[in-house]
Structures are given as structure tokens and as C-alpha cells.
Amino acid sequence: MGTLKVGVVGCGSIANHRHLPEYQNNPDAEIIAVCDKVEDRAKATAERFGAGKYYTDYHELLQNEEIDIVSVCTPNYLHAPVSIAALQAGKHVLCEKPMATSEKEANEMIAAAEKSGKKLMIGHNQRFVPSHQKAKELIASGELGRIYSFRTTFGHGGPEGWSADGKNSWFFKKEEAFIGALGDLGVHKADLIRYILGEEVKEVAALVEGNAKENSTVDDNAVALLRTESGIIGTLTASWAYVSSEDNSTIIYGEKGIIRLEEDPVFSMVIQYKDGSTVNYQLGQIQTNESQSNSGVIDHFVESVKEDKTPLITGDEGWKSLQVIIAALEANETKKNVQL
């Protein structure tokens, strides 16, 4: 298989800061088309990244037979429709998170991938962070003994400073976003905990609020309590109200020690052992909106397609992580724990 021809649907910040630069830097990929409903944005993005064609209707982009793979970088409510259409058109699909707005949509995406024989990957980039990969390895090896608890959080000042449309962004509109900070940030941490611990979440309780942002119809602060299949319990926090600096840290509490991830400004992983000793790891800092680097997502997706390998985050994996977040919404609404 030669160079993969790429089409990107949605020309907002995630496309311009992550997907397109990473495709551009991958020698096995060539960006040939982009699409955005705002024509000026589509045209400017095409010029910036050397795409030969730009569209304002994604159906037209999908009719381009040259395209091998499609990145879906749209508002959340379009993730499923665009992904399904792309798969049906014979394209491999990399879809941003959260993958869908419901179980029905997620299942339809998974079914479309199976029927087409094409790959579907969800862009959960936290699995590619070196400290997270190292923590998973150490926990699996028994380095920390039995795991008892965890605390994982993702919070910053909100998407208005990141989104192409600022305070008028689709992120704040329930009809387009479906979900706020929980879907923007929390689903990353749900996926991370599943990945690091190697276990599924089986029970969820949650408190969810939407009081930090004006003119918003979605959540912006949430705390969920999770229990895994082996009985590990912990908290997951997602917030758009951390106004000083981003917090993207995770702490794992084990029988033989504590792993602190992305908490220290210098050391991306710190292990505090039961005997009082500490080991510091400099593995490279986690990517933030202010500090861009190669996320690893696009390179992994391109490699998966070229070598015909199953991607790390399949549609099934994406749904299992989204299911935790949907359960948190249900738990908050019903004031009852939700069993998965």
C-alpha cells in the first residue's frame, strides 16, 4: 500500500492543531481534501495544508474515490452520521471523541465498520502518553501489588480559548455538543482509567453541574465515583472551571506504592513506594492546548491502516469509555448508582 490519501471533515481547532499537522508530518499520508460548512474556513485550511480540494458538504468529499482515510473533526452530534457515511463509502475512519451521542449511534458506527471491512478508530490520545503507557506496564507487572483506588482529573478554563468560534462555540450548545466537560474531558479520563488498570468500570455515581459558563446548556463541572470489576474505586473529575492552569493528572494508589502521573511540572511520573523511597521519571510532558506535540494518534492510525492491524482504540473501546460518561449523566439525573 502506497501513500494514504487523507480527507478531513471539520476544519476547527482539533483539525488545525492536531490532525492536519500530524498527517502533514507523516510520510505515509497525503492530505488531499478538507471540508467545513464555513467555506472561508475550508478554503483557508486547504491552502494552509496543501489540500488540492475543499468542500462545504461532507457527502461530496466522501464521493472522492482517491480518499483512503477520513478524520472526523466535527461537532459531537455529527460524529456518528459522518463516520457511518464515510465507512459506507469505503473509507477508514478516525473519529474524534466522544464517538457518539448515544448507545444506538455507537452501535451503528461499530456495525458500519464491521460491514464495510474498514477500520474505525476513536481519537483517545491519552493512551499514547509515555507516562500512561509506563504506568500501565508497571501495574500489569505487579510492581504496585494490588490496586486499591485512583483519582483522575482533567480540567481547564474552558473551550472558548481553544475553539475556532470562541464563546459562541458549539461546545456550549446541547443540540450540537450533547454533553459538556464530561464529553470534552471526562471521556478521556474514563478511557485512560480503563486502559491503565486493564479493567472495565462496573458501577458509576455522579454529581454534575452547569454553573461556570454563561449562555451554556451543557455541563461544565462533574465528579464521578467509579468502581471497577475487581473492586477498585476512585474519582473522575471533569471541569471547565480551572481558571489558573490545566490539570490533567492521575494518581493510582496501590498496595506497594503510589503512582503520580502528570502532576509534577518536571517529572511526568513519580512513584512513592511504601518503604519511603521515591523514583522520578522524565518521560516527556503530556500534550496540552498550549503545548502542541505529536499526539501519536495519527501515526498509529496510519500504521494500522497500512499494515492492516487492529487500532488500539476500536469502536468497541470507544463505546466502553463513552458508556461510563453516559452512566454518569444518568446517575446524576436519577440520584442512583448506575450498574454497567
Rank of each mutant, 00 (worst) to 15 (best):
E66L: 11
L62H: 03
A89I: 02
H17A: 15
T45I: 06
A112F: 13
A113K: 06
V82D: 04
V8Y: 01
A112C: 13
E108T: 14
E108G: 15
I31D: 04
I32M: 08
E96G: 11
V38H: 14
L4Y: 00
A33C: 10
A89S: 07
P21C: 13
F49E: 08
H124R: 14
L4A: 05
A111D: 13
P27E: 11
L61H: 05
M1C: 14
G7T: 08
S116H: 02
C35F: 00
R41Y: 11
Q63S: 03
Y23V: 05
P81C: 10
R18W: 15
E66T: 08
V8P: 08
E66I: 08
G117L: 12
L120Y: 00
E39G: 11
I84H: 06
D28Q: 05
V34H: 09
G50C: 14
A42P: 09
M1Q: 12
S71V: 02
G90N: 05
L20E: 03
E66W: 05
A80N: 03
P21T: 14
L61E: 03
G52T: 12
E47V: 11
A89T: 04
V34C: 12
M109R: 02
P98V: 02
P98F: 04
T101M: 06
T74S: 09
A106H: 07
H59K: 10
V82N: 04
K43W: 10
I110M: 09
Y58M: 09
M1W: 13
V93N: 01
E105L: 10
K115W: 12
R41G: 13
G117D: 10
E65L: 02
N25A: 15
L120P: 00
E60M: 04
S102D: 03
G52Y: 03
G90H: 04
H17W: 13
S83W: 04
G117W: 00
C35K: 02
K53R: 08
V93K: 01
A33W: 00
K5S: 12
V6A: 00
H59G: 10
A86F: 00
L87P: 00
V8L: 10
V82W: 02
H17S: 15
T3P: 09
L120K: 00
K115D: 14
I69W: 00
G52K: 13
Q88P: 03
A46V: 07
D36A: 13
L20S: 07
V9R: 11
L4M: 12
V38L: 13
D36W: 03
Y55F: 14
Y55W: 12
H59D: 09
K104R: 13
S102V: 07
Y54D: 06
L20K: 10
D57L: 07
K37D: 11
V9C: 10
G117M: 11
D68P: 02
Y23A: 04
D57V: 06
M109Y: 03
P98S: 04
V8Q: 09
L78M: 06
D68H: 02
A46C: 06
P81Y: 02
I31Y: 01
A100V: 06
I69M: 10
H19S: 04
E22L: 11
G52I: 10
E65P: 01
S83H: 05
